[in-house]
Write a protein that binds this DNA or RNA. Structure first.
Length: 273
DNA sequence: CCGTAGACCTGTGTGC
DNA sequence: TGCACACAGGTCTACG
């Protein structure tokens, strides 16, 4: 579900409400949720520690706890971190009681989400976390970097944007939006684009993500921020979810296709190969 | 190395 | 109304 702007919004909302709070109790009801250490140990590690920092890296939420414990959360498709359980919510998978009386809930309809809690030096399998590429809003993510990666790959440029080792945080929505903004066909072979085009794409990625963060993320269906509110960027989407509707730029009907197994929407006129 | 299909889950929407 | 099927914002593995 959430891509970079949604995770950024969640982290921003939760930070002032979590920072400095001590975890009193951790209770995980879904055995699929915890990846490291085993569930019982995980539940025993958090209590008694204050939350020192909460930040985002790619689509991961990174929480630093007292005593050098790092708590890592990936929401995957439908995960939510909430400070209040909405009435009728049937998918709570874990609860974390905090000093002061608040409770941080983890809810997840499809149960794809993951959590880890590890100390320095532990051999925890952190999935893709250790191999994340540059943050798209940092200067490390540049046209030069994209070009150097693209040179060796023939895969569709959209697949490049979705590869978290190439750039951390883009998903299906913002990949389509950035390609539209850059005027690039999502199926173009990566190694056939020019440096000029990669400059446009790099800038488009930054612009689209900035605007989406400003808009507090995109709520297509499931996404909610840390306080349970929907985002606002769905009203600004140019192509995602608009297959068959008219391009807002040139009035051509938007086309759809599959790339890398993901549904893809683009304008056949504004994004010619 | 590359690309695709299937897997992990549960729910919703669509068409017959 | 019931049922089957496609599809969903993410990622990993197996396989050709």
């Amino acid at each position: 579900m959430p891509e970079l702007p949604e995770v950024e919004t969640i982290v921003t909302d939760l930070r002032p409400r979590l920072q400095g709070r001590k975890v009193l109790r951790a209770e995980v009801s879904d055995p699929l949720l915890v990846r490291f250490p085993p569930k019982g140990q995980f539940e025993a590690r958090l209590p008694g520690r204050a939350i020192e920092a909460i930040s985002r890296r790619g689509k991961y939420i990174v929480i630093g706890l007292e005593g050098r414990l790092t708590w890592l959360i990936h929401l995957r498709m439908t995960g939510r971190l909430l400070l209040a359980l909405p009435p009728g919510e049937a998918h709570a998978r874990a609860r974390f009681d905090l000093a002061g009386g608040s409770v941080l809930w983890y809810c997840d309809l499809r149960r794809f989400g993951d959590m880890w809690a590890w100390f320095p030096g532990e051999d925890a399998n952190l999935g893709g976390f250790l191999h994340l590429g540059p943050e798209p809003l940092s200067s490390d993510f540049s046209a030069r970097w994209l070009c150097s990666v693209a040179a060796t790959r023939r895969t569709a440029v959209k697949n490049l944007l979705l590869d978290q080792r190439v750039v951390a945080g883009l998903g299906n929505i913002y990949a389509d939006e950035a390609l539209f903004a850059a005027g690039i066909h999502p199926g173009t072979p990566s190694n056939s684009l020019s440096l000029r085009q990669y400059k446009a794409l790099c800038q488009a990625v930054k612009d689209v993500l900035q605007a989406a963060i400003q808009g507090r993320g995109t709520t297509f269906k499931d996404y909610r921020n840390g306080l349970g509110a929907a985002g606002g960027y769905q009203h600004s989407l140019q192509v995602y979810g608009r297959r068959g509707q008219l391009c807002l730029c040139c009035k051509t009907p938007l086309a759809g296709c599959k790339i890398g197994g993901r549904s893809t929407v683009y304008c056949p006129h504004c994004q010619r190969r």
